[in-house]
Amino acid sequence: MIKIISLTTLLLLTLNTVYAAEAGMPQLDPTYWASQVFWLTIIFSAIYFLIAKIFVPKIKGNIDARESQIRKDIDEANSLKEEADRKLQKYNSLIDEAKLEARKILSEGRKKINEDIQSKKEQIEKDIQKETLGATKEIEKFKINSLNKVNVISEEIISEIIQDIFKEDLNKSSIKATVSEVMKERKNQI
């Protein structure tokens, strides 16, 4: 608006001298109109053909190339991601399987060990029983033997004591009878 006002005032100011000098608006002087249109046509046509045939396809090509590159990259990234997911799934399933197997092996091992322990235990118990039985028998045998030996020793001691004290020999069979009688009595007492 300011421009238009100033322009009109300017025109009014220069109007006084418009007929006097070459001043005024050179735009309205038709001397070079044809020349301007002529050169404009040539130069603008040239620039139009340059732009239409060379520059616009080039810029468009650049932009399209970038877009397709970006699309390609995104597609690749997506496919990689899918593959990674698949791999992860596979890995997880492998781990699950391995865990299951480990548990199975563990339980099997435990069972086997338990069985082993059980059988060993039984074996040992059996052995112990056998040993105990043998030992008892031996003790029994010892007992009987020792009793017999005690009888014999007692007879000898008695005959020696009698010999020492009374200075005479008693016959051995009577001593034996007496000792066995006493032993029998003792045994009964016990």
């Binding site: 070079y32 020349s35 404009l40 040239a46």
Partner: peptide
Amino acid sequence: IDLSFTNASLFMLISAISISIFLLLGT
């Protein structure tokens, strides 16, 4: 008809050359 090369034509040409240089650098 006067079709002489004028200062207007010169500046049209300068603009056109500037455009060409600009777009050439751009592509």
